[in-house]
């Protein structure tokens, strides 16, 4: 099926099965590897992207649902620069293996859209991705730092 959607500010058309999860369209068809596969069942958050500004788990969204919509992935998050969340992640030295990090950064960027200055409880309630390396302690600090950076700019 021929489908069109906006990816990081550019229109993309793909000819793929309509029930193909967005994750695989991004990774395999469009070769955008920043969005990660962790579970394929919407459970880990590694594949988090933004659909019209809302965080979604792209492994569990068929590509037909994004027809004519806007998708932002980690590759486009900072629009050619480092996004405040990425900047905060660097300043706090968050990543270890790095695999879960794009998903967390995408989830955080969306959280800061909704709640610009989240409390620890907001973070606990909204950031439900999984990181096996255990970078959570630094992530919390980085989320607060990103909120500050956003407010400064």
């Amino acid at each position: 099926m021929l489908l069109k959607f906006d990816l990081n500010g550019k229109t993309q058309s793909v000819d793929v099965p309509e029930d193909m999860p967005l994750l695989w369209v991004l990774r395999d068809t469009l070769q955008q590897k920043g969005t990660k596969f962790g579970c394929g069942k919407g459970l880990c958050g590694a594949c988090t992207v933004h659909l019209d500004g809302n965080a979604i788990r792209s492994c569990s969204v068929p590509v037909s649902q994004v027809q004519n919509k806007q998708i932002t992935t980690i590759e486009g998050l900072g629009k050619g620069q480092l996004h405040a969340v990425q900047q905060a992640w660097i300043e706090e030295g968050v990543p270890q293996c790095g695999y879960c990090q794009p998903g967390f950064m995408m989830a955080t960027a969306e959280l800061l859209q909704r709640i610009p200055n989240p409390t620890d409880t907001d973070i606990d309630d909204n950031i439900t991705n999984i990181c096996r390396c255990g970078t959570y302690y630094r992530m919390r600090k980085a989320i607060h730092k990103a909120a500050q950076l956003n407010q400064k700019s």
Partner: peptide
């Protein structure tokens, strides 16, 4: 010092086995 792979990981460069093509 900051990790040498920090920026690549924050930019989500395709560095993993699953990304290999």
């Amino acid at each position: 010092l900051p990790r040498v792979d920090l920026v690549a990981k924050v930019k989500a460069e395709p560095i993993f086995g699953i990304d290999a093509t």
